Amino acid sequence: MNIKPLADRVVIKMVETEETTKSGIILTGSAKEKPQVAEVVAVGPGKVKDGTLVKPEVKVGDKVLTNKYAGTEVKMDGVEYTILGEDDILAIVE
């Protein structure tokens, strides 16, 4: 099953974070911070502003930084995704 976002929405998959600190301490699930780096999986066509279609600046495969608790989490075929508006993407990571 595929997710096809509408308007300026973007589907992302969070990038896993380190579970061990540099000093070797293993972090439990509650001690880890929610990751903010994600990979773009799907992008909507854009939104209409002043009668013109404004295309999204991100594309599939981009690594992005997002607001910490933005979007709606969904689980499909055992994989967790987040659907959010392009406004919740802070930057593209190069």
Rank of each mutant, 00 (worst) to 15 (best):
M1L: 14
N2V: 15
N2D: 15
I3D: 08
P5I: 11
L6T: 13
A7Q: 15
A7F: 15
R9P: 06
V11W: 07
I12S: 01
I12N: 00
K13H: 10
K13R: 12
K13S: 09
M14V: 04
V15F: 03
E16L: 07
T17K: 11
T17A: 08
E18M: 12
T20M: 12
T20R: 11
T21I: 01
K22Q: 13
S23C: 09
G24R: 05
G24Q: 04
G24D: 04
I25P: 00
I25K: 02
I26V: 08
L27H: 09
L27E: 09
L27N: 10
S30Q: 05
A31F: 06
E33V: 01
P35F: 02
V37H: 03
V37F: 06
A38Y: 05
E39R: 01
V40P: 13
G44L: 07
G44M: 09
G46N: 12
K47G: 10
D50N: 10
G51R: 14
G51M: 13
G51I: 13
T52A: 12
L53Q: 05
V54I: 12
K55E: 15
P56W: 11
E57V: 06
E57G: 10
V60M: 10
D62E: 12
K63I: 10
V64Q: 02
T66G: 01
T66E: 00
N67Y: 00
K68E: 00
Y69Q: 01
A70V: 05
A70I: 00
G71M: 00
T72A: 09
T72D: 02
T72M: 04
V74D: 06
V74R: 04
M76W: 02
M76G: 08
D77H: 13
G78D: 05
G78H: 04
E80I: 06
E80Q: 06
Y81V: 03
Y81T: 02
I83M: 04
I83F: 05
L84A: 00
G85V: 07
E86W: 08
E86S: 11
D87T: 09
D88C: 09
I89R: 02
A91F: 09
I92W: 03
I92H: 05
V93D: 02
E94K: 10
